[in-house]
């Protein structure tokens, strides 16, 4: 029995690879857009514009307080009611981009705020504009604090992308779900799904860990 199903599974591998590509596509697009947006929001959040800070803060809180699945449903089902017709793929990318931006925003803001204010004072004293301060003094230093959790966040978002299978996007998870209807060996099918995600995520987790070690200058008192 197992042997028979195993053969069928092997024959389905091309299907799985297409699903893997879809996962990469959805995640990739969302992570790039989300990073750009997240940095912009993060800089605002760490800045002085009180109104904008609060608005972005409130939105981020809403996104962090609700399940991503619910957000996907809202983007997919409700935006059409407001007149924006969306197919599953674009809706997914928008939802995941938004999610990414919100979490990355907090990481960026945290990183910027961890830079001692003395740095900003020194830059101001030498006459640098806010933009120049940010670009040459603050952000380069903040990147040391931002990079490890940023990579870690990417892993989380790639895993979150599996949720879009619920609205029909044919990513790796959905391929698994479809396949298990024909090949009722859940362990084999989703074992394969797991391995495919593992291949993407595990190296990224290791990267995040090694970045964290390198960025932390350890001063131990002996």
């Amino acid at each position: 029995m197992w042997g028979f199903y195993f053969e069928q599974l092997v024959q389905s591998i091309p299907f799985f690879l297409k699903g893997l590509w879809m996962t990469v596509a959805v995640s990739g697009l969302s992570l790039v857009a989300g990073t750009v947006l997240g940095f912009v929001w993060g800089v605002i959040r760490a800045g002085r514009g009180k109104v904008l800070k609060r608005i972005i803060g409130a939105w981020v809180d809403l996104i962090r307080g609700t399940p991503f699945l619910v957000q996907v449903f809202i983007f997919f089902f409700i935006l059409p009611e407001a007149g924006i017709q969306l197919e599953a793929f674009p809706a997914s990318v928008i939802a995941l981009t938004n999610l990414s931006a919100c979490f990355i925003c907090e990481i960026v803001a945290g990183g910027i705020q961890s830079i001692p204010s003395g740095q900003r004072e020194a830059a101001t004293a030498s006459g640098l504009s806010s933009y120049h301060q940010l670009r040459y003094i603050i952000l380069p230093q903040a990147m040391r604090t931002i990079l490890p959790p940023l990579v870690g966040q990417y892993v989380l978002l790639i895993k979150d992308s599996s949720v879009v299978s619920a609205i029909g996007v044919t990513d790796v998870t959905r391929v698994g779900w479809l396949t298990v209807q024909r090949i009722p060996e859940g362990i084999m099918v989703f074992g394969l799904v797991g391995i495919l995600y593992f291949l993407i995520c595990y190296p990224l987790i290791q990267l995040s860990n090694s970045l964290e070690k390198r960025m932390t200058v350890v001063t131990t008192k002996l």
Binding site: S162, T173, G176, E185, I187, F190, G194, C201
Partner: peptide, 14 residues
């Protein structure tokens, strides 16, 4: 290294 949804389906179908 794997999504919760995949783990959930793993148990549900497995």
């Amino acid at each position: 290294s794997t999504p919760l949804l995949a783990q959930l389906y793993f148990f549900y179908f497995g």
